[in-house]
Design a protein around this nucleic acid. Sequence first.
DNA 1: TATAATCAAGTCATCTGATGATTTGGTGAT
DNA 2: ATCACCAAATCATCAGATGACTTGATTATA
Lengths: 225, 225
Amino acid sequence: MHALAKTSLVDSAVEAIRSEIVGSRWPVGEKLPNEAKLSQFLSISRGTVREAVRVLVSQGYLETRQGSGTYVLSTADASRPLTMARRANLRDQFEARLALDAEAARLTAIRQTPAVIAELRTLLEKRGNFDGSDKAGFVARDLAFHKAVVAASCNSVLVHMYDFFSTLISETIEATLGEELQEPDMASHAAIIDAIETGDPEKADAAVRRFMAPVLRDLERLLAS
Amino acid sequence: MHALAKTSLVDSAVEAIRSEIVGSRWPVGEKLPNEAKLSQFLSISRGTVREAVRVLVSQGYLETRQGSGTYVLSTADASRPLTMARRANLRDQFEARLALDAEAARLTAIRQTPAVIAELRTLLEKRGNFDGSDKAGFVARDLAFHKAVVAASCNSVLVHMYDFFSTLISETIEATLGEELQEPDMASHAAIIDAIETGDPEKADAAVRRFMAPVLRDLERLLAS
DNA sequence: TATAATCAAGTCATCTGATGATTTGGTGAT
DNA sequence: ATCACCAAATCATCAGATGACTTGATTATA
């Protein structure tokens, strides 16, 4: 059995207002009725309306201007996609991160500078290989390297999304697998830097995919069992 | 000049609680102090605390259980990455969407079925070429085709993120360029289907990138001017 | 007339206090 | 040992009031 979650009044209100927004009853730029009117329309108290509006603001739909009103900012939900991603299965999360990783490597290859290459090599040096102790520190250094590759792409969107998926995937692994996936070794990492250094986006992309292929295979095996 | 935004009490409270969460003062699974205590700690009223908590719930950090308490759900922010994306420049948005598009084409090539290929061809047929009238309808049919390609990847994460970026990019174009970018023609679209049909992810990826290359070039030119 | 200062209405921001609904753990009867 | 019941804890919601800010109209002034 799967009891349907009785949604709270706030959730209902969020849904009601959201549907009016995406349904273009209030197009982008439009001013919403004030809190008193909304609370009338929805038959809920002003405090509840405020919580609902606050949620929609945090999701990027609305903007409130004190003394002026509440306005529609966008019809794209900046929260739903990644909220869904959180509930998706590990494979889908991995594939999404791979897409970001590969694209970042492409752009980094195009936009690289000698300084960036040097920095990446330094970070990889620092990372080293896992020596059996200080697991957390090793994971952190490994992540720092990968994030640096993405950061070097000079694309802020990729950077933020990569951060999210990194955290999400490690949390999901902890929650579902309990064990860690095998980490590629230094040589595989170095191959990525080498590919980026050539300046060829195709090679950089391919290097990342070669890098991730065994991890994905491991994953499919673990999820199948 | 750029006046610093005086943040509201709610925003400050959100920041304060968030930092405690990511700072592991309250690790995942932990129960937060109740609303009365939080309002004491932060020196704000309970209603304000509730708005802050509600925001953090909508961002995936927290979960409230009536009668029990408020618990930490995750340390990954499901809202910040795409909120940032909204403020990013159009080029970065495009590159991110391209990453999704290319990865989706790869997966679709691997997971394709004859039925899927047939459906894509039908959608492309329906789309047709722009005949000068009913611009909105044409854009909708074009989007339906591209979404179908992503949907066929069988990856829900890619689907949701693609939806978001599609909406975001069209809104950004409207807000910044005012004019539309040139749409690739039927032949370029058909090439994507053909590549997917071969079942080779490399070819599918390449087809998508060939498809998008002129659009990206246009974009760079427009943004430079 | 054109411009600047002032004012008032509208609106969101916040606080306070109270009541309802739900969960949870304990208590006692069976 | 199990079940029914109860009470405390906690979130959910409501109501009313005050403060802060924006905006457009009004008025005074050069």
